[in-house]
Design a protein around this nucleic acid. Structure first.
Length: 801
RNA sequence: GCCGAUGUGGCGGAAUGGCAGACGCGACGGACUCAAAAUCCGUUGUUCGCAAGAGCAUGUGGGUUCAAGUCCCACCAUCGGUACCA
């Protein structure tokens, strides 16, 4: 019996145990190990100037609980952390404050790191990585070189977002409602030469291999939708000037309903035949106007379609040989399909709007007959069903050499260059004679040159352009004069493979050793935000598949299981942001209540996968729970008669071990904590706890609140060593069951009475027991029993009439 | 428009087709205190009723079932993603 218990003081005990774990390297994973492995991963943060957000610990604590439990279950656990530190905000901050981004990054990282350490998360800090470290980005560049060598990295003229005021290229994420994120000026599309990665080559595999992994359905659906596979046909339309116009359609069966063609304004056909287009001036003018339109304006145009007919040009419908006009309109995009469409105003809303406006004929080729869709006005397709007609016309086009089956994807290749300083340099040299020449692998890493003062680029070029002695080099191939690529890689580059680096973080011969990769990969459980579904998650799957094709990784998918946490909102249920003034700083919570309270609160706040608003008074409940746990020391008594306590608590303990174990695996941290709260309430009802149960409770709570449990484990001598290194408690299914159960009496489905009976009681017995109760007679008097239903050990429902 | 999700007390949220509201917050009443905080003990979906008790309750309307928050059909609302993608 402990006579006098000192106050629960998280400030004191938390740093004490954090130091202890660190000093004893308790969370360092072993690379050479015979135990089964478990690789738990959370998205590594961008070390922003704002410091840690309360959203970060939600994800980190959740997988910390998983990692800690798996360690206790005997797994060799890898739970690493690092920094995704290249990026625009740091560069902008550096420009504004005239500091070097590397200095800003270092400062931010050290703040983040101390904040993370104060939460007691069991990261393996011996494998800490940093994407801005040349030893790391050497391998990011190396992967780029492999992509280049396989023809998957190429330079191309593409339309990019261009801010008219900053005179700078913007990433899609930097464009908000068609305006620049920073200055709110208009953003237009501009054609620029950019490095691209051919992610489209992997489109089909990125869809198919989703079957190999355990992701939430919403994540899979979003990726599939983003990749946007559609199947249809490419059809050749001859023109009266010789050149064929190739169109793409998903509805080839409607070809008899085609009344005109539409080209996108950028379609090369226009430029190629300008001499033959009688109204070329008008067409050219339209083209320029269309180009000037911002995304925002184009969106407005959805309701009001515009276009110009190409006068002097006619196309021939390949099935009817009828002549049809050709238009140019910006409702057709050059970036999808062939940049040209066959218009079927009878069965396409957009074509119909256009046809209405320009008084073009509208022809119906599908009609409902006896509730079935049948082809009409379509010669040899007439009276077929739509799907039959589709097959027939596609075959017809193929045999007559007028078209072919075709699958298209909405997914575009990845624009991979940024006109920025703070990113990985692209290891390519431009030589007038040899073209784009890759650096030799021995020359990696290609380091960022040090620039004293980084200035905002003027005309959309990288600040690196002005570093002449870095830019001007000799060509690795011909030794002639050449220039380095001055664009850098986007923020998503370093994060596309970082999880591989953790397996062997300091290897300077390979991105990681074969043994390390084969042992640790794939990641067993990866938790991260929904906002990365179509960005980081897709990009990293693409890179991983590429590395799989190179034989570097053993399995085509990097993440076995992916889960997604919901956002933590401000108290007003809005997104936390400085401008809304509803930001909660995790440091304040740790200082006021302790890290354990913050951890328990964030896990208890609600369904892990859903957004949840912060509630300042709610935290008190979590603190109170830990105080009550701390208070168990007062009723702890080693001499308590085990049998007597077993009688009252045994089943509950077995149930709780089972529930907590399963809930952690199923992301139900909130109900796991609720079960522990309920158990502690029962312990207080009994007003006693012995060593056996105190130990079990402590171990169950330890992944959630690692510091206080460690302290109590130590103070009360609950066992050898430290709590986090003990075996995870097990349960016996047969002991989860109470021997007495409550059975419910329903009359016509309504609850009328209850009684307690021994488990396993039979229908006849329970019926007799209920029959003797006054409630039974009250509700059945004067009525006939039609039916009785007994659910073993649960309920008896009597149907009367 | 399309895809996905969600809808339960004052609030966050629990419920393998089988007692709706676990657990927590808040509120109310009480104990302790000179007082307050903290703590502890009660009460707390709603309506009618002094009470015993009864009725009504899981976005709306139907259906299946002995039994529906849960399954089926139709709709409404909110959130997220995406969008002239042919």
């Amino acid at each position: 019996m402990v006579d006098k218990i000192s106050k629960y003081n998280p400030e004191e005990i938390e740093t004490k145990w954090q130091d202890h774990w660190e000093k004893n390297k308790l969370f360092y994973a072993e690379n050479d190990c015979t135990r089964p492995k478990f690789y738990a991963l959370v998205e590594f943060p961008y070390p922003s100037g704002q410091g840690l957000h309360v959203g970060h610990p939600r994800s980190y604590t959740a997988l910390d609980i998983v990692a800690r439990k798996k360690r206790m279950q005997g797994f060799n656990v890898l739970y690493p952390m690092g920094w995704d530190a290249f990026g625009l905000p740091t560069e902008n901050f550096a420009i504004k404050n005239k500091i070097h981004p590397a200095v800003v990054t270092e400062k931010n990282i050290s703040r983040f790191k101390s904040q993370l350490k104060s939460l007691g998360i069991s990261f393996d800090w011996s494998r800490e990585i940093n994407t801005t470290d040349p030893k790391y980005y050497k391998w990011t560049q190396w992967i780029f070189l492999q992509l280049f060598k396989k023809g998957l990295a190429y330079k191309s003229e593409v339309a990019v977002n261009w801010c008219t005021s900053c005179k700078c290229v913007l990433a899609n994420e930097e464009v908000i409602d068609g305006k620049c994120e920073r200055c709110s000026s208009e953003v237009i599309q501009k054609v620029k030469s950019q490095w691209m990665l051919k992610i489209t080559k992997y489109a089909q595999r990125l869809i198919d291999d989703l079957e190999l992994v355990d992701y939430p359905e919403r994540v899979k659906a979003q990726q599939i939708h983003w990749i946007g596979r559609s199947s249809g046909a490419e059809v050749n339309f001859e023109t009266d000037i010789g050149e064929i116009i190739k169109i793409y359609t998903t509805r080839p069966e409607t070809i008899f309903g085609v009344t005109y063609l539409v080209l996108s304004p950028e379609h090369p056909f226009i430029e190629n035949h300008k001499g033959k287009i009688k109204n070329f001036d008008e067409v050219e003018k339209y083209k320029i106007e269309a180009n000037k339109k911002s995304d925002f304006q184009r969106m407005e145009m959805v309701k009001n379609k515009t276009g110009v007919q190409l006068e002097g040009i006619e196309a021939l419908n390949p099935v009817t040989s009828k002549k049809i006009p050709v238009f140019v309109s910006d409702y057709v995009l050059m970036s999808y399909g062939t940049g040209a469409i066959m218009a079927v105003p009878g069965h396409d809303k957009r074509d119909e709007e256009f046809a209405d406006k320009y008084k073009l004929p509208i022809l119906k080729v599908i009609e409902e007959v006896n509730k079935r869709e049948k082809m009409v006005n379509s010669e040899f397709l007439n009276s077929l069903e739509v799907s039959e007609a589709k097959t027939k016309i596609t075959n017809w086009l193929e045999t007559n050499n007028k078209g072919k089956k075709k699958v298209n994807y909405k997914l575009r290749d990845w624009v991979f260059s940024r006109q920025r300083y703070w990113g990985e340099p692209i290891p390519i040299v431009h030589c007038d004679r040899c073209g784009y020449v890759p650096l030799n692998e021995e020359d990696l890493p290609l380091r960022l040159p040090n620039i004293e003062l980084i200035k905002q680029s003027k005309n959309g070029e990288s600040p690196l352009v002005s570093v002449h002695d870095w830019v001007n080099v000799t060509c690795p191939k011909c030794k002639g004069k050449a220039k380095r690529e001055t664009d850098t890689m986007p923020q998503w580059a370093g994060s596309s493979w970082y999880f591989l680096r953790y397996t062997d973080a300091f290897n300077d011969k390979n991105l990681a050793s074969k043994e390390a990769i084969d042992y640790w990969m794939p990641v067993d459980w990866y938790n991260g935000g929904m906002e990365h579904t179509n960005l980081h998650l897709l990009y990293s799957r693409f890179w991983y598949k590429f590395l799989y094709d190179l034989g570097i990784v053993p399995f085509p998918e990097p993440y076995k299981r992916r889960t997604s946490h919901g956002m933590i909102l401000g108290e007003n249920s809005e997104k936390m942001s400085k401008s809304r003034g509803n930001v909660v700083n995790p440091d304040d919570i740790v200082n006021k209540y302790g890290a354990d309270t913050l951890r328990v609160y964030e896990m208890f706040i609600g369904d892990f996968e859903k957004a949840a608003p912060w509630n300042t008074t709610g935290i008190k409940g979590s603190r109170r729970f830990l105080e009550r746990y701390w208070g168990l020391q007062e009723i702890f008594d080693v001499s308590i008669n085990e049998k007597e306590l077993d009688f009252k608590l045994e089943a509950k303990f077995h149930q709780t071990v089972k529930k907590v174990s399963e809930d952690i695996e199923n992301l139900k941290f909130n109900t796991a904590i609720a079960a522990l709260m309920s158990l502690i309430n029962d312990i207080y009802d009994v007003k006693a706890i012995n060593k056996k149960y105190f130990r079990i409770f402590t171990l169950l709570l330890s992944p959630f609140a690692p510091h206080v449990t460690e302290e109590v484990y130590h103070r009360c001598n609950l066992g050898e060593g430290v709590a986090c290194a003990q075996k995870w408690p097990t349960y016996d299914n047969s002991k989860c069951i109470d021997s007495n159960i409550e059975i419910v009496l329903q009359i016509n489905g309504k609850l009328r009475s209850k009684l307690t009976a021994p488990r396993g009681i039979q229908k006849d017995e329970i019926f007799e027991l209920f029959k003797s109760m006054p409630e039974f007679n009250k509700w059945t008097d004067g009525k006939g029993i039609v039916k009785t239903i007994y659910i073993q050990d649960k309920l008896l429902n009597i149907v009367v009439k």
